[in-house]
Design a protein around this nucleic acid. Structure first.
Lengths: 233, 233
DNA sequence: CCTTTGTTATGTTATTTAACATAACCGGGT
DNA sequence: ACCCGGTTATGTTAAATAACATAACAAAGG
């Protein structure tokens, strides 16, 4: 099948795509109703309060989904990897984004038209089931995050964030360096702590030999201990 | 249509039932594959780690869904009202409960068989869409709760909990007394704080004339201020 | 009616975390 | 190379919250 651009192809055919297994005709319909946007590092994909234009597929790059609190403090609710989708929720309920999203690397997004998707789902229970499954998983993830962020201590929360980053973005070729470059502020936003505390706690884990820190490159040295801190901290 | 017992009837025909609009034949199928359980106040509906038997409908009563943390401290993730459903997630992904649930009043639950429901959903995109919609709503709720519980101060968290309780269970006939009786420990678990702090903060709101407290009966006196504290606390 | 047991209330102390202040560092642009 | 602005690092202080201790109270059962 021929696609207009590599970005939409990636969204529809990529390794983890929701739309795997969909028939070519339906894929064509989706591909026929999308727009591509280039987003620079640091730029917003969308802001809380804006109207959703559809389901967003992060074709290339990396992004964060977050809520802006008082005083500019952000709480990150989700880190998104290549081929990840954003905005299942705005698809089915509200049309208004209840969170903001920003690129943490230069990215390309495809916006898949809401009405097209909903129309497809109405006659394709299989596709709808896939959405349901993903929403369930996200719900489970969100609920566990709530528990972690409220009950764990600062060290445990940071450890968990590092594990989340590893699970989301994986390692560099060396097999130990996290394949993502985040500011300390973002790490703090992900871990529900202040930037100072993120820096301090990273230093702590580093001097304990559990992780290595060189600027924004973070290596996980002692996975077992890190997971231990995550589970019991 | 005739049902075997009032409990399953409630689940299928109750005001907020997921299954509203389903045709009689399908409803009959669901009704043909369920079990009813009576649960006493304080008893578990299920425990984290147990195998799910299906989708639970709280036919009568009230319940809480929670995670048990270290030292017996509970974080409540959801309060369930009459005719509420529990366990969408276990239906689609894991078969294992990742949370526990307990009755906070004597209750009757219907357990609707997983395979029956999944089979129905596979051929009924409409029903599946309903699940999808509810899951989206729950996901949105869960994400906002994460933000609230992590970013708000203790007074704001408690105010939010009271509002959640009002929105879930409503008021008594007097139009101001919360129609639910929770221990201070449960209020604490819902608000992510210790029991002592729940008691103290309730006293505080009470002496400020925002709420009234007489044992477990809580009245909301000044809604505007309470919502204000919730939003800016 | 009294005992028992769990819940609620309140004061005190300890701990965790945020807030603030300042300095060192680092990368990009000229 | 050198400045500049943002990031990172580290120390100090303040605030929020948990932990602990104890007492009052209330409901349930003998």
């Amino acid at each position: 099948m021929q696609y207009l651009n590599p970005y939409i192809e990636n969204c529809l055919e990529g390794p983890d795509s929701l739309f795997k297994g969909l028939n070519s005709k339906d894929k064509e319909t989706i591909a026929g109703h999308h727009t591509v946007n280039h987003v620079r590092r640091g730029d917003y994909l969308f802001r809380e309060g804006e109207k959703s234009r559809g389901l967003i597929c992060l074709s290339t790059g990396k992004a964060k989904v977050f809520k802006e609190g008082v005083g500019g403090r952000e709480q990150i609710v989700k880190m998104v990897r290549q081929n990840g989708f954003i905005g299942y929720r705005a698809l089915f309920t509200e049309n208004i984004w209840s969170f903001s999203a920003a690129a943490i690397e230069d990215s390309n997004i495809c916006v898949l038209e809401k009405t097209t998707l909903v129309k497809l789902m109405k006659k394709n229970a299989d596709l709808t089931m896939k959405f349901t499954r993903i929403l369930s998983e996200e719900l489970g993830y969100s609920n566990s995050r709530t528990i972690s962020l409220t009950q764990k201590h600062i060290r445990g929360r940071l450890a968990e964030s590092l594990i989340v980053l590893r699970d989301t973005y994986g390692f560099d070729e060396d097999g130990k360096t996290l394949n993502v470059s985040l500011s300390r502020e973002d790490i703090a936003g992900l871990s529900n702590m202040t930037t100072s505390n993120a820096i301090r706690t990273l230093s702590g884990l580093s001097s304990d030999g559990i992780i290595g820190v060189k600027g924004r490159r973070i290596t996980i040295i002692d996975t077992t201990t890190l997971e231990h801190i995550c589970n019991l901290g």
